[in-house]
Structure formats: structure tokens, C-alpha cells
């Protein structure tokens, strides 16, 4: 039988410069099935085929910088074809401005700063490598979470624009675990960074 109807699932841009979209294949009817993604952009009349089916993995289309515009609605459909016929997905509309989900920040370091009047833990991190924050193309906000190593409950701290945070009132002698994540322009939060560990001195 002809293939089932494919369905566009989601699109993601890690840095507002490129993006990838994924679809879910329908049933293949037991036959080899070929997928074609066609799209048109706001202010353009013509349809184009997906420029790169390879980079994003199976059932995906990758749009490099040359094929990526922001503040522009893309209208996409996926067509599944086998020897007995074809089936086409419901149109999917997406604007790269609203699908930015950065990669997680990196190099989260935890450093104890012991001073006479107040001791604290200094947490510092670096924006995700591919995000261009230097030019201002992306502006990232950060959130931290921290917990004692032996307890399940995270304590979340919204940081805002900075890339460091001073944490007071930690318990002496306890091991802590921390992670950080980021988002751009109220978009999706990134995954959490890898965990960093720290043991607070027994006395301070």
C-alpha cells in the first residue's frame, strides 16, 4: 500500500544562524520509501527542496546560513513516496526567531572565596561555543541549579545576563553539585550543562 502520512515534529536553531527540522515517518507500507521536504518562505513565490538531508541525521532537514532567514515564516511539507503512491504531511509553519534553543553553557567552575567578612562560592561559566554573543547577535540569560550531593532536590537560581554568581549560606563540609543552562530572547532553555562538584570547607 502507499505510505502513511508523515508529520513534521519540530525545528530547532542552536544559534539563530542555522536550523534543523525533523519529521516522523508514517507507515512505510512494507516498501522502500523516499522522503522529500519542500518549503517556501514569506515574500517568496517559489518552492524549494530541502538543501541538506544528511547533516541533521535520519528524517531531518538542515538549513545552513545561506538558507536561514529570521523573522520570516517558512511553510514546509514532507512528501513520502513508495512504488504504490505518495502521501503528504499537513503544512508546518515556522519562524527561526521562535525556535532558538542554545547548546548548554560550558566550563562551569566552582571556586571558594574565603574572606574575613564573608565567604562564598563563586560560580563561573562560559557561553556555548557556537553562540555569537560577542557581536550581540545573541543575548543569553542564565539559570543555575545546585543541590547537596546526597539530596535529590535542586535549588534553582535565575541569574539573568551575567556569567558568574556569588552563592552565600552554604553548609560547611557538604559536597555540592551544580549545573547551568541558558536561553535567548525568551526562547527555549538549553539542556543543563554537565555537572560540576564542590566540597565546602569544614570551617570558615
Amino acid at each position: 500500500q502507499p505510505p502513511g502520512k508523515p508529520e513534521m515534529i519540530r525545528c530547532r536553531s542552536p544559534e539563530k544562524e542555522t536550523f534543523t527540522c525533523w519529521w516522523k515517518p508514517g507507515s512505510d507500507g512494507g516498501l522502500p520509501t523516499n522522503y522529500t521536504l519542500l518549503y517556501t518562505k514569506e515574500r517568496e513565490e517559489s518552492y524549494h527542496e530541502c538543501p541538506d538531508y544528511v547533516t541533521g541525521g535520519p528524517n531531518s532537514c538542515y538549513f545552513d546560513q545561506k538558507h536561514t532567514s529570521v523573522w520570516t515564516i517558512y511553510n514546509m511539507t514532507v512528501k513520502a513516496t513508495n512504488a504504490l503512491g505518495s502521501n503528504i504531511s499537513t503544512p508546518y509553519y515556522v519562524d527561526v526567531a521562535y525556535i532558538v534553543e542554545p547548546n548548554p553553557p560550558v566550563n562551569l567552575t566552582l571556586e571558594w572565596v574565603g574572606q574575613a567578612y564573608a565567604s562564598y562560592l563563586l560560580l563561573k561559566w562560559v557561553p556555548p561555543p557556537r553562540a555569537d554573543v560577542r557581536s550581540g547577535w545573541l543575548t543569553l540569560e542564565y539559570e543555575l541549579r545546585i543541590r547537596p550531593k546526597e539530596e535529590p532536590e535542586w535549588d534553582n537560581i535565575f541569574v539573568g545576563l551575567g556569567t558568574k554568581y556569588q552563592l552565600f549560606r552554604l553548609n560547611p563540609g557538604i559536597k555540592y553539585v551544580a549545573q547551568v543552562r541558558c536561553r535567548s530572547d525568551r526562547g527555549e532553555w538549553s539542556q543543563w550543562s554537565s555537572e560540576s562538584h564542590f566540597q565546602v570547607p569544614k570551617e570558615f
Binding site: K16, E17, R43, Q65, S69, V70, W71, T72, S135, W137
Partner: peptide
Amino acid sequence: TSSLTTPEDKEQAQ
């Protein structure tokens, strides 16, 4: 406002 020409990616904006 679509009649106003505005940069649509980083390269154009730069």
C-alpha cells in the same frame, strides 16, 4: 512594515 527593508540574518545585519 514588510515594505521596509530590514536585515534578516546575522550577515546582513553585520
